[in-house]
């Protein structure tokens, strides 16, 4: 299948990219990894008039820790995360996610920031960013701004990025030694969108009670959701199976999925529950807390 014709811009600097975006406004789409956009264009479901290819922009492929945040530039590919030993050893949630996005070949091109900007209702990174309380750095005609992920993700395929703006970085708080996370996803096969998935992050107090919890679920609503009630239930409590059950139940409650070939609404809601539960058990296990 052949995409419709478009005008191609290959800026060599961020300024140049922003000026293209300013000039073409809603007619332009940013091309980063392109792993969702290009297939959509092949089916002519997307027919942007102008593509602004940011792949040649310098200095956007960095992964660095700065001011207590892990910063991933807009050209960090999923595989950069997947293959990083540092990520694997310390960022359990992010590492988990990086291994199950799309398929191994797609991950060589797909970008973390691009996925967040796409904000597909089944996106993996959105759930992780919610659970980890990530922030997005955005550049635009009005300069730079940083936005918490909950404000950045607005709706199905919609973010707070305005016309002429571009996301340049995602920031994940650096986890301390008492923090772990996990991503639990069920998909019908590799490469399928999630039937349901849950991202969890847990920080323990030295006394073993839960200091903070972050829970994001995806593929079970119009967009990835934070399970706030579950976080509240967990906060300050000693982790037990009953507690996890109660928290997981909150995911089932707020999930509001569309039935499709992946499952009925009822099934997906229940899977949101099961996967949050499993994610919590796995994250705690990584902190050497075994909840039987």
């Amino acid at each position: 299948m052949i995409p419709a014709a478009f005008e191609y811009k290959r800026p060599m600097s961020l300024e140049e990219a922003l000026s293209h975006l300013a000039q073409y406004g809603a007619d332009a789409r940013v091309l980063a990894g392109g792993q969702s956009l290009i297939p959509a264009m092949r089916y002519r479901l997307a027919q942007p008039a102008v593509l602004v290819d940011i792949n040649k922009l310098p200095n956007l492929g960095y992964m660095k820790e700065e001011n207590g945040m892990l910063c991933l530039g807009a050209l960090v590919r999923d595989t950069d995360v997947e293959f990083s030993p540092e990520i694997r050893s310390r960022y359990h949630l992010i590492s988990d996610v990086s291994m199950v996005v799309a398929d191994p070949i797609v991950r060589f091109r797909a970008t973390v920031v691009g996925s967040l900007c796409h904000n597909d209702p089944s996106g993996d990174w959105a759930a992780a960013a919610i659970a980890a309380r990530a922030q997005m750095a955005i550049q635009g005609p009005g300069g730079a701004r940083v936005e918490p992920i909950d404000r950045f993700l607005v709706d199905s395929f919609a973010t707070s990025i305005g016309e002429g703006e571009m996301a340049v970085e995602v920031r994940f708080p650096v986890p301390n030694a008492l923090t772990s996370g996990a991503y639990e996803k069920i998909e019908r096969k590799v490469g399928d969108y999630a039937t349901a998935a849950a991202a969890v992050q847990v920080e323990l107090n030295p006394d073993g009670t839960i200091k903070e919890a972050g829970i994001g679920i995806t593929a079970v609503a119009h967009m990835a959701l934070r399970v706030e009630e579950a976080e509240k239930i967990l906060r300050g409590q000693k982790p037990t199976l009953e507690l996890i059950r109660a928290a997981a139940e909150e995911a089932r409650k707020i999930a509001n999925p569309n039935p499709d070939a992946r499952g009925s609404a009822e099934y997906k809601k229940d899977m949101a529950r099961v996967l949050v539960g499993r994610g919590l058990i796995k994250a705690l296990k990584r902190l050497n807390v075994v909840v039987a």
Binding site: M1, G34, I38, P39, Y43, D53, I105
Partner: peptide, 30 residues
């Protein structure tokens, strides 16, 4: 396929990266 699913078009980009060459525009290979 047309959906980046099958991988029969996989090529190597810059030595160490595999890409589905149906999901990249030729102009991007400049």
């Amino acid at each position: 396929c047309d959906s980046s699913s099958c991988g029969v078009c996989t090529v190597v980009l810059d030595g160490k990266t595999a890409v589905k060459s149906c999901t990249m525009f030729a102009v991007q290979a400049e």
